[in-house]
Design a protein around this nucleic acid. Sequence first.
DNA 1: CTGGATGCAAACATTTTGCAACGCC
DNA 2: GGCGTTGCAAAATGTTTGCATCCAG
Lengths: 150, 150
Amino acid sequence: MTNAELNDQDLDQIRRICEEAGIKLTHQRLEIFKELMTARDHPSAEDIHRHLQKRMPTVAIDTVYRTLATFDELGIARRLHLANNRNLFDTNLAPHHHFICDACRKVEDVYWPDFDSTALPEEISAIGQVRSRHLELHGLCTACLEQSGE
Amino acid sequence: MTNAELNDQDLDQIRRICEEAGIKLTHQRLEIFKELMTARDHPSAEDIHRHLQKRMPTVAIDTVYRTLATFDELGIARRLHLANNRNLFDTNLAPHHHFICDACRKVEDVYWPDFDSTALPEEISAIGQVRSRHLELHGLCTACLEQSGE
DNA sequence: CTGGATGCAAACATTTTGCAACGCC
DNA sequence: GGCGTTGCAAAATGTTTGCATCCAG
């Protein structure tokens, strides 16, 4: 998770979003935003907090949680409730699913538009009205496959 | 969750399973087994514990957790790691998915064999090897739909 | 200045673990 | 009777909340 520089566009974006939402653009919110936007993976609140402490030693974990919840509400990031308890956060707002490595827990985005548009089985209408599909593909990532193969 | 009587077949089953696995068939394990087999829904460890306390006031929650973990290993029940939620337990061992009501949290089994046999998108082979598919359909169940419609 | 945001601590919910006592085989 | 299992307590984990202080607008 190296910290590539954010461009001015991104900074303008968070500034505008906070203004429109009527909330303050605090130092913490800005830094957490940067952290999210430059993260290549799907960081947990703990990941972000740990990483942030190097630059802001006094930042509290609950501020990270509160900020991520705010970002989720504002539509900047999305809280991923994955099936193995830990909540991760994702800035990829395009419709997608996830591959999860059962060995190293790495999470990768998966696009499968054909599945998204497949009709659900008839019987489901008797159970309720489906509003979203949450798909997780579990297995071993290429790195872990190689390691286990040796 | 009314307690229909278990038939002798089920009792023989748990007795045999414990014997084969070389573990003791304790009073607690038997009662937790009964509880699981007669549950219509997908109970949490807390649910089972609460229900069990009526008959066994001293049963401890950690015994329930330990027993459910054992049953999961023995293949009697399956621990469901659902997104969002605490761990629930399921005695339906047939391949299936779940519908989760976002309002009342009720979990219903969903069978969708066509999806299970659909080929995954090509690109996934570059990410890793998929061993299982975890699908959750989220929405509102019929009961909650009616309630919100009134 | 002032109300919303933060840091701290403590509560919270869920699940796990160490250990002495217990009871199934 | 021995060892696996239980109950109790306490820890571990992950997340949320109450409150006094602080700082962005």
